[in-house]
């Protein structure tokens, strides 16, 4: 097995870890992964930031980071939670938004906005949709219904 320790590959490995709640996107896609530093001794320091203060996925992400980087040959993996600057959906890449849409979750618009804007149905593309609940299956999503195709869908809230 080839060791990649010291080759600067820790970011790439960490960046490929899927989000536990939305496995179609990675923690880098979402902007949760902030920073990865490594030294030539195989020590890695990873900084991640929660989407919401109470996001229950953070512990899982920490475990995933430690297990994945350890399996890749890193000897000491340290994961730090950082709060500032506060996470925003503006950090989500366009690629991530496209992946979410294909997965059936309407991606966030530019935000945050207090005036509700039209949200496009990820199923049929109609803009004739309505919000059925400001809070959805996880803290970061709201619940919507499409009037055109009658399907309910999740929307990733701008914050």
């Amino acid at each position: 097995m080839t060791s990649i320790v010291g080759g600067g590959g820790a970011w790439k490995i960490a960046a490929d870890i899927p989000d536990p709640e939305l496995p179609v996107v990675t923690i880098a896609d979402l902007g949760i992964l902030r920073d990865v530093t490594e030294d030539d001794q195989g020590r890695v320091h990873v900084r991640i930031t929660p989407t919401y203060s109470g996001c229950p996925a953070m512990e899982t992400i920490r475990t995933d980071l430690i297990e994945t980087l350890t399996a890749a040959g890193y000897r000491h993996v340290d994961v730090e939670f950082v709060l500032a600057p506060a996470w925003t959906t503006d950090w989500m890449s366009e690629e991530a938004k496209a992946k979410l849409r294909a997965y059936g979750v309407a991606p966030p618009g530019a935000g945050p906005v207090s005036v509700p804007l039209a949200v496009r149905c990820p199923q049929c593309g109609s803009l004739d949709t309505r919000e059925s609940s400001r809070f959805g299956s996880t803290a970061c999503k709201s619940l919507w219904v499409c009037r055109a195709c009658r399907e309910p869908f999740d929307h990733f809230k701008a914050i």
Binding site: P50, Y52, S53, G54, C55, P56, S132, S133, R134, F135, G136, S137, T138, A139, L143
Partner: peptide, 17 residues
């Protein structure tokens, strides 16, 4: 049901804080 989700999420935010 939607309100169950909403109040649980609000509580979760507060718990995180």
């Amino acid at each position: 049901l939607e309100e169950d989700l909403a109040l649980a999420n609000i509580g979760l935010d507060q718990l995180g804080q």
